[in-house]
Simulated scan of single mutants.
Amino acid sequence: MLASGARHRYEGRVHREEILGQGTAPRDEYRWHRGPLNLLLLGSDSRDGEPDQGEYSGQRSDTIMLAHLNGARDAVTMVSIPRDSYVEVPARTGVWDGGRNKINAAFAFGGAALAAETVHRLTGVTIDGVVVANFAAVRTIVDAVGGITVCLPYEVTSTTTGRQWTAGCHRLDGNATEDLVRQRHGVPGGDLGRILDQHLVVKAIAQQLSPTSLIANPTRMDRLLTTAAESLTVDENLDLTDLALALRHVRTERIRFVTVPVSDPGLDTPAGSAVLLDSQAAAELFTAVREDTVDRWLTDHPRYVSTTD
C-alpha cells in the first residue's frame, strides 16, 4: 500500500463527482480488497452546436466499456458497448422524459451519473467505480507512459488531420493516439471498427507498462497516477491507488476485449440510425460478468472477442 502522504498527493489532484447512486447499486467498502470488480470507463467528447439539453449539453460518451476484474484478480475483460446501442435511458427531470434512445445520449441528458445508471439497468452489473476521460486525457496518458505501439489490421485515414496509418505496427505519441481513436468514418466497420481501435490502444498502453509492473516501478507509477489524477474524472469513492493495487497481478496477456453482440448495426429509429443489440447473446454476456464466469463465455463465443495480438 502507498503511504498516506503519497495518497494525499494524488487525492489532491483528482477531480471527483457523485456518480454512483441508488440506480447503480455500489458494493460495500471492502470491494477493493477481494472478489471481482466492475469498473465503468466512459470516454466523453463535446458536440458543439447541438440543441440545449441541460448541464451536459453537447457531450456524448463515445467510448463505453465495462472493465471486469475477475475474482482471482489475475484477468481483466474489457466489454465495449457500442455508442449507438438503442436502449432504455432513464428519465431526467426537465431534460429527458425517459425511453429508448442511443446509449451515448445518456451522458448528454445527465452526465456520467445517468450514463452509469443506464449501463447498470442494461446489464444488471454492479458498478464499483467510474472513470471518465476525454480525448485530451488519452493524449496526456499516452505521453506519460512514453508513447505506445499500435498494430492495425487495416488502413486508417484521419478525416480531421489527413494522417494515414497503413496496416501494420505504428509508434504513436499522444497526439497521434487521440487522432486515431477519434476516427470512425475512415475505419472499416465505422463505429464498430473504432471499438477495435480503442481496444488496440488500451492494450498498447498496458503493454507499455510491462514487463515491470506499476508496483515494482515507483517512478512510473507516480508519473502515471499523477497524470491520471489530473486528467480524469472519477466517482467520489474511487481510490486510484487501491485500483492500481487491485490490478497488480494482471499480466498483459490476461487482458481480453469483447464487444457486446449486435443483431442490427443500422437500425432506423426516431433517434436516427442506431445499433440493435442481440438481446439473447448480450444477456448471456452480462450474466457471465455478473456471475464471474467470463472465461467460459469467451471460450463459447470466440467471434465476439477482439484480436489485439
Rank of each mutant, 00 (worst) to 15 (best):
P82A: 09
G147A: 00
D97V: 15
T126Q: 15
R121F: 05
E88P: 00
A112L: 00
D74K: 09
V156G: 03
F135S: 02
S80I: 03
E155L: 04
L172W: 01
G110Y: 00
V87Y: 03
V89S: 11
A108P: 06
S80T: 01
I148C: 09
E155K: 14
A137H: 00
F109L: 06
A106G: 12
L114I: 07
G124W: 07
M78R: 01
V156K: 00
M65E: 08
V131Q: 02
T161R: 12
A108D: 13
A144P: 11
L152D: 11
P153Q: 04
V89A: 08
G129A: 15
G94F: 01
Q164A: 12
T160E: 05
M78T: 02
A115V: 05
T166W: 08
V138M: 10
D97M: 14
N104P: 08
R163Y: 13
L114V: 10
D84A: 03
T157Y: 07
T159L: 06
T166H: 13
L172P: 07
D128Y: 12
N70K: 04
Y154M: 14
N104F: 06
A72E: 12
G168W: 03
A67Y: 01
A105W: 10
I103C: 06
A137Q: 04
R121Y: 04
T157H: 15
I103P: 06
L66H: 03
G94Q: 12
E88N: 14
K102I: 01
A75L: 03
E117W: 04
F135V: 02
R73C: 11
L69K: 01
V138R: 01
G124M: 11
R139P: 00
T118N: 10
H170Y: 06
V156P: 05
V125Y: 01
V125D: 03
A113L: 05
V79F: 01
R121C: 03
R73W: 08
L172M: 06
P82C: 09
T126L: 05
L114N: 13
V76N: 05
T77F: 02
S80A: 14
F109M: 12
R83W: 09
V145P: 00
P153S: 05
T140S: 15
A113R: 15
Y86K: 06
L66F: 00
S158T: 09
I103Y: 03
A67P: 06
V87N: 05
S85F: 02
V145R: 11
G94T: 11
A112Q: 00
R121S: 13
A167L: 10
A67W: 01
V125R: 02
Q164C: 10
I103N: 06
T160I: 07
V132T: 14
V142D: 14
V125N: 02
I148G: 08
T77M: 04
A112R: 00
A105K: 12
P153G: 04
A137K: 06
W96Y: 12
A67G: 12
R73P: 11
V138P: 01
R73F: 07
V89H: 10
D128S: 10
V125P: 05
L152H: 06
A108K: 04
R100M: 15
K102Q: 14
G111E: 10
S85Y: 00
A91Y: 11
T159Q: 12
V131F: 03
G146P: 12
A115G: 08
M65K: 00
M78S: 05
G110N: 11
D74M: 09
V156M: 02
H68V: 04
D84K: 03
V132N: 05
N70L: 07
G162W: 12
A105Q: 13
